[in-house]
Amino acid sequence: MKALAKTFVVVWLALVFVAAAIGAMLELGPAALDLRAPVTDHLTDTGVSHPVTAVLLNYRGYDTLLEIAVLLLALLGILAAGGAAGSAAPKAAHPMLQASARLAAPLMILVAVYLLWAGAFLPGGAFQAGAVLAAAAVLLHLVGLTRGWDSPRLRLRLGLAGGFALFLAVAAALLTQGALLGFPPAWAGELIMLIEAGLTVSLGLILAGFFLFLSRDLR
């Protein structure tokens, strides 16, 4: 009886909270700052024609720079916390599954490159492309075609940190021209494509690393 009363009180409080939250949402006024018009007005200066990519890499490039730094830090945390490495050879999956993974992986790389390219004028971009790359690596690992990663060698380290380093280098170079990540309109498109290409490779490796470093000593 007591438990029932307690449940009743909890459910009732939760419902009151939900109602209050919905009420607060409905009473929200219009945004104090409407940025839609400025974003579309200056879109021609950004080097890309898709507004989301323009916001991510040109208007708010600083945020994206820190985002990739956070992801890299998370991976470094995993590497620092990782215990003894002892990766046995992965268990091979059914040959049929392996064959379809072999077929799918090149297509996934193609899709990643397309997403990267399309990011300039359509939905897409470095993060999605990197995720698809990482998914390809995870797929190959799950069917037993590639091993989990042990401690990273120089080449892998370069790949993991390269995107962030490239982004930082571009930001530092632009700092001498005036503002941090203030792209000159003349070659903003090329710079953004360069940064995005670096980000795609690094993000693919980092996201795959979350998977492949963690799974190394459990198999």
């Binding site: 939905p123 897409g124 993060f127 995720a131 998914a135 996201l207 799974s215 198999r219």
Partner: peptide, 28 residues
């Protein structure tokens, strides 16, 4: 659609695979 792509690839795909792998390791 940008967020939808990221959600499908990272939220459902990679995180799901990671969770399934962790579950398999736990069971093993």
């Amino acid at each position: 659609p940008d967020i939808a792509l990221a959600e499908a690839a990272i939220g459902a795909g990679l995180t799901g695979a990671l969770l399934l792998d962790a579950y398999g390791a736990l069971r093993q």
